[in-house]
Structures are given as C-alpha cells and as structure tokens.
Design a protein around this nucleic acid. Structure first.
Lengths: 110, 110
DNA sequence: CATCTATATCGTAATATTGCAATATAAATA
DNA sequence: TATTTATATTGCAATATTACGATATAGATG
C-alpha cells in the first residue's frame, strides 16, 4: 500500500507528523541552521551553501514552506527566506510536553 | 535518484534529520503520545490503540527504537516500551536553539 | 512437550521521496 | 525589447516508506 492512513489519526497527530517529516532531512536541517546562522533574510545564497543542485534545493525550500516552517518574500528578482515562527511554535509545545514528562517520570521498567 | 546524500552533510545534521524523520509519521506521534499518556511501560496494548495491523505497528516501533526515541525490555513474553530520554534530549537542544533565535530576531524582511 | 500469546520478520504491492537535467518563468538591467 | 539573473516546474530514474498477510520466533502455561 504505502499510503499513510492519515484519516485514522487526529488532526494534531497529522500536523505534528507533517512538521517533523519536513524537518527530517539533512538538507532541510542545513537550511534551517543556515537561516539561523546568518541571522537575516537570505536572498538565494542557500543554493551555494548546500551540496545539491538548484532544483533540489528549490524543492526542499518548497517543502519547508508548505509545512509552514519558513516563509519567503520577493525582493526584486530574488527571494528572501527566513524562519516562520508559526510552524516552529506548533512543534514547541509537543516537545515541551515530552520534556516535562521525561523530567518527572519515575519507576519505569525501562 | 532518491538517495539522500548523507555523506555531504554533518553528523549532527544527519542525526537530527533521522530523529525528526522518525517522529514524522502520525502513527509514531500516536505511539509517543500514548506512552506519555499511560505514564508507564506498555506491554503490547499499543497495537490495540492504533488503527493499524500488528506487523505495521511493530515496524513503527522498530523505527522509533532504531532512532533512539523509545526503548523496550522483555517482560515475560511481552515487551515493555517507553520513551528513551537520550533521543529526545538530542532534539531538545536543536529546538531550544531555534526558539531562542525566534524570540530575539528583529528587523527581518519576512 | 503441545499450545497459546505476544511480537518480529518476510515478502510484496502501492505509493512517496530524493535528486537532477532540461526547461520555464519572472524580475532586473542593458 | 533582448539579455541576464534568480528561482520554480517538469519529467524521470533510483530508492525509500508504508501497509499488511503469512509466517516465524520466543516465552508462558497447561
């Protein structure tokens, strides 16, 4: 089959999965790290930073954008990308929940 | 090609991507949420909680285990699964870094 | 030991992802 | 308007993922 049975899961579960999946590629991790590192809007030098061809980078940017993790504005004929808080805020709560749980859990068999 | 070019990225980037990718499926989000909810080791009732066949659940558990996000102990003829702090701690720093950045960033074009 | 119960593995079909060359598009500039 | 520059889209091949029936395995129990 190969189709993820999204309809059997909650919207929250599907949304979190989509976000995590979008982050789940080293090229997309690299893009996120680069956007943080340069601490400003990046107008296209992402292609030069990555060991991938331009169409491939464009595809990764598209996936991050679709997931709501980055956003881009036209700036002349270039595009200015930066992180999108909305997307990251959605994951933040999930991980904070997990961390709180892990800090307090006791008497587990493993 | 379809092969992720892991060799061109740093170990950290590959590791973070592997962790995020493992989380990036609604069934695996559901497993994580369930393990937190029951607040104890779960010996096999995960299959009953999910809308998927037993082999499929077993496969998802394997992926979470391989990524270091859960661990399992034999408990009689059943297996006891719970969250693995190690894996989650690795992602924690990444997201904390992002959150700190997002809270402080200013004067961005987007 | 035979059987039951719980979980894993195998095999396979359907689908998704990754990557890139070629090409298209769109704004800027000569 | 022709050209350049920046980015996106298309098309396709290679590979990975998802799902499940069938089957294997391993401990518990009769």
């Amino acid at each position: 089959m190969g189709i993820t049975k999204s309809e059997h899961f909650t919207d929250e579960q599907n949304e979190l999965a989509t976000l995590a999946k979008a982050i789940g590629h080293p090229a997309r991790i690299a893009i996120i790290q680069h956007l943080i590192k340069v601490n400003s809007c990046v107008c296209g030098d992402i292609v030069n930073e990555l060991p991938l061809a331009q169409p491939t980078v464009s595809q990764h940017l598209k996936e991050l954008k679709n997931a709501g993790l980055i956003k881009g504005n036209f700036e002349g004929n270039a595009i200015c990308y930066c992180l999108n808080e909305e997307g990251f805020n959605k994951i933040k709560d999930f991980f904070q929940h997990i961390n709180t749980y892990l800090e307090n859990k006791k008497n587990q068999c493993c």
